[in-house]
Amino acid sequence: MPIDRPTAAELLSAVREHLTERLAPTLEGQPAFHLRVATNALAIVERTLAEGETMDRAEKKRLSLLLGVRGNLVGLNQKLSKAIHQGELDNQRDALLEHLRKTADDKLRLANPRYNVPRDN
């Protein structure tokens, strides 16, 4: 990737901010809703660019420890799925669940960081 500014992440933020601040106020109804869906999707990509790599490294490390093998992230997750299905990790439940929860927390932080902000009246 070129080192020139704006970076990919900076371009993305500029697009999202333009859509949210300039375009959104001119729309209503269904188009406004779809624009909000679109800018939410852009925000997911921005957070992934910022944090994804660190998350991936940590996940890979945890997976290698659990499974005792190395590999790429998709391959390791495929192995993990199979091992869970076949009950091979039934005797390390706590470590397994801790890994799965940590991974799910990370995914949620990228997909919807506001998920656990209470909205109850």
Binding site: N40, L100, L110, A111
Partner: peptide
């Protein structure tokens, strides 16, 4: 559709909920 594409990432929410509910 955009909505279907974005719903893919809602799996992060259900996965999170699921792992809170089980032990």
């Amino acid at each position: 559709s955009l909505e279907k594409a974005v719903i893919g990432r809602r799996t992060a929410e259900t996965e999170y909920d699921l792992l809170q509910l089980v032990n």
